[in-house]
Amino acid sequence: MARASQSKNRKRSSKAPRPRARKRVTPSEDQLLEYYKDMLLIRRFEERAGQMYGMGLIGGFCHLYIGQEAVVVGMQKAIDDRDAVITSYRDHGHMLACGMDAKGVMAELTGRIGGYSKGKGGSMHMFSRDNRFYGGHGIVGAQVPIGTGLAFAAKYKGTDGVSLTYLGDGAVNQGQVHEAFNMAELWSLPVVYVIENNRYGMGTSVKRASAAKELYRLGEPYGMPGEQVDGMDVLAVREAAEKAVKYCRDGKGPYVLEMMTYRYRGHSMSDPARYRTKEEVAEMREQHDPITNLSKVIVHAGYKTEDDLKKIDKDIRAVVADAAEFAQASPEPDSSELYTDVLVDA
């Protein structure tokens, strides 16, 4: 069992155990390969975005998701087309996991008309109603009440939809997060709060920022169950996600998942990451990389050989290369776009 906070029946001991491997339903070969490809697409996309940023093709802020891929991919496998997703500004991985086209995402990063926001939003502000992805929000914590509002609408309309509302460990100290938790439990709203604990809010570690160290327990005073999950293990994430989504879908109210994860890159492109040791980063990459570890599972099970996986990697690199090419070939928005989309035409 992962650490669980069951505040409703008050059976939790004060010192919960560390997460350890659990017995789980073995995913099929197809599922494993799907997870692998989805994570690899995000990894390769982000590496390319970092490279294009270095070439000056992407401006402003650019927050890469490398290292955290298992979280969105595992969560996404537990939802369907009734459900909505919203996150903060480290959002490229979420968009790809939601099925948004790599070309449109990359073209938004380069500020071109072919981007999801026609080049007007950039890295932090991208949306796709068709894919039920509600952004892409640049203000830390702001997506949490908004995501709670998505859950409110689902309940109001009776759609059985669930809102996956992602936030980082840095966001949990924003007052509005707690305001949203309170209303979500008060009104029994179907929202899973996915706290992606990558250990640092920009350059400040969780222990230097948060008096509460066990973030999965932050919903406890409101009566919300919470669980800590190995966010580097896509299978553990998927299993926790299914449980949480079912809880919400059954009308029991909100749920907190704390994903223990790690970003390999700096907070943004201009962050040299001096607040952590090289050994710490190396240990995570070498021991806990979600993609490498899943590839071992796949090879060990005899589903694919190393060479097969290389071929998959090559295909994914081609997808990303196409996206990068599209993002450079797509024109900048026409000057007439400056004044469009300020308001919706009545």
Partner: peptide, 26 residues
């Protein structure tokens, strides 16, 4: 009380919640 809703005293929270509900079509 489904359509006329008393909120807690939580302006930042319920304003954001209202924006989210509007994005979702309410």
């Amino acid at each position: 009380d489904r359509r006329v809703i008393d909120t807690p005293i939580t302006e930042h929270g319920f304003t954001g919640l209202g924006v989210g509900a509007a994005f979702a079509g309410l």
